[in-house]
Design a protein around this nucleic acid. Structure first.
Lengths: 136, 136
DNA sequence: AATGAAGTCCACCGGTTTGGTAGGGTATTG
DNA sequence: CAATACCCTACCAAACCGGTGGACTTCATT
């Protein structure tokens, strides 16, 4: 399940997509419009900035804005930044891989199933972008 | 990500599939063979029994065994019992549905993407069974 | 009926994560 | 230089996770 943080992130990003190319947006503005706790949102946006999804500008007239065109950022990317691995097991994760100490056996029974799940999931999440968040 | 509990569950079930039709298997036997903390395993097996996946027999010569043929129990079922929802959002979960209070909007942007992910995932997990755990 | 092997049940526990709050520091810009 | 707005640290309660302990039932066997 996506954490609340990730859901907040998507809501905030939706707002930023709507305001794309209209200059920086205040945290407090996003917070009010999308009803996200201000200080919590601050952390989320900062994290997204560090991950290269957002840019920010300080001082008067400052705020947050998308670094790239909405169509350039995959949903999978957002989830990874905020919630971590998408795969169901560390040993089948592409970005958070860890050797599976439990499957000492050369062949882990769950392995190929979980790879299949991962691929099916990524096939969707890596083809949908932030732009899709406002298509209606 | 699957919890350790779920991973233990699959390991234990693998053992029970191997011993299918050979009578009840001791918890302690599974614990040793699969290196799963005994008491923790106890909880897991009990949970699986309550969910109708396993049967047990008390007293001497007792133990746990699969209630149905391995090909009759889907992996999705196991995950739901042990870890809960498979879907990434409560509002797109089939078995743990909850109305999404955040998407007051008629149209939640994430909704259809997450439904697609859910369907792709279930398409795999509901077609693989416990029997697949030992195919090698 | 007594024994003892086995599952059942329930409470608890320490650590981590999650969701959230508070308050101040620091950099930028008008 | 002061207002603005980002940045950082610390803290907190509640839930969850992985795991343990101990008492209690049930049942086959003798």
């Amino acid at each position: 399940m996506l954490s609340k943080k990730a859901q907040y992130a998507f809501r905030a990003l939706t707002h930023l997509v709507e305001k794309y190319d209209q200059g920086p947006v205040l945290i407090s503005d996003i917070s009010k419009k999308k009803k996200i706790p201000l200080k919590f949102l601050e952390n989320i946006l900062l994290e997204l900035k560090k991950a290269g999804v957002l840019e920010s500008k300080k001082g008067k007239g400052g705020g947050y804005y998308l670094k790239n065109h909405p169509s350039k950022t995959h949903m999978a990317n957002i989830i990874r930044v905020v919630d971590g691995p998408i795969a169901m097991l560390p040993c089948v994760s592409l970005y958070f891989y860890e050797r599976c100490k439990n499957c000492n056996e050369q062949y882990c029974a769950l392995h190929d199933t979980m790879i299949a799940v991962r691929d099916a999931t990524l096939n969707i999440l890596e083809h949908r972008t932030l732009q899709d968040l406002t298509n209606h």
